[in-house]
């Protein structure tokens, strides 16, 4: 009889223990935060440190969208890692090396390229991305030689002015606004101008017309459209033109009147 009682008691205890451990208040096991190279870990890290400027889902933020297969395919991994680690001097991209160790940053960038790069980051998939590449295969970084600002001004007239009139009347919302504004140019680097021309801002499609990449189509003065794509030299010239409106980068007046 006592053995039966002890069995019942044990069973009851087991039941209570097991049942209680299934109650909703039981705290979850404290697992280490999901690694940055898992989808959850990547999403967590992105949401914590990047979403503020690059958009909640990698698009439609004030800064360059990162959920952009063509961009991720065009920019080498090392360069991306360096940008995330050190930031870009003179711009509003901060470096994250003080928050996170380099290995984690590298894995974060690799995961971003896998998650958002489509197939563009693998050699076999690169061709597929190239087929739709708005940059038309032009190198993401300036390679050599200096662009021709005078020719750039002419190109600007036929390709850009339709959406970016030189003198923006400030309440004209039918255009995308001036890019020749001297304050705008003081805030953005030549690389920013180049990247914007090459890859466009297709994520802002709700605007009157999403900004195309180098592949076009464009709208020139008087709204005449121009479907011909930009060449590498065209891009150099356009950047040279815009840059000539600003002067050197970073603008010396900025370093003087700003604190940094």
């Amino acid at each position: 009889m006592s053995s039966r009682a002890s069995i019942i008691t044990t069973a009851c205890c087991c039941f209570v223990t097991v049942a209680c451990d299934r109650l909703p208040g039981k705290p979850p096991i404290r697992a280490a935060a999901a690694a940055v190279d898992t989808p959850e870990g990547f999403a967590t890290y992105y949401a914590l440190s990047c979403a503020g400027c690059h958009g909640a889902d990698g698009t439609k933020g004030p800064a360059r969208p990162m959920r952009d297969a063509a961009y991720l395919a065009a920019v080498p991994e090392d360069s991306l890692i360096a940008i995330v680690r050190d930031g870009v001097q003179g711009t509003r991209m901060p470096g994250f090396s003080s928050d996170t160790d380099e290995a984690t940053l590298a894995r974060f960038v690799q995961t971003m390229r896998v998650q958002w790069g489509g197939d563009g980051t693998s050699p076999s998939g690169a061709a597929a991305v190239l087929a739709i590449d708005p940059a038309n295969g032009i190198a993401w970084q300036h390679v050599a030689g200096s662009g021709d600002a005078r020719r750039g001004a002419e190109l600007f007239e036929t390709r850009c002015v339709g959406c970016h009139p030189r003198a923006t009347t400030i309440d004209d919302r039918s255009t995308a606004g001036s890019v020749t504004d001297r304050f705008y140019l003081k805030l953005v680097s030549d690389q920013h101008l180049r990247t914007s021309i090459l890859f466009g801002r297709s994520d802002l499609s709700a605007s009157t017309a999403a900004m195309p990449g180098a592949r076009g189509p464009f709208r020139g003065a008087d709204g005449r459209s121009d479907a011909s794509a930009l060449s590498a030299a065209d891009v150099d010239d356009l950047v040279a033109y815009l840059s000539s409106l600003r002067g050197e980068w970073p603008p010396s007046s900025e370093t003087k009147d700003g604190a940094r």
């Binding site: 004030p62 509003r92 606004g177 890019v179 504004d181 705008y184 805030l187």
Partner: peptide, 22 residues
């Protein structure tokens, strides 16, 4: 760095205004 602005604050802005949001 973590609170993304609503898309409404990004769209229909001039480049300068977008830089301002940045």
């Amino acid at each position: 760095k973590s609170t993304a602005p609503d898309v409404a604050f990004v769209e229909h802005r001039t480049p300068l205004e977008t830089q301002g949001l940045l």
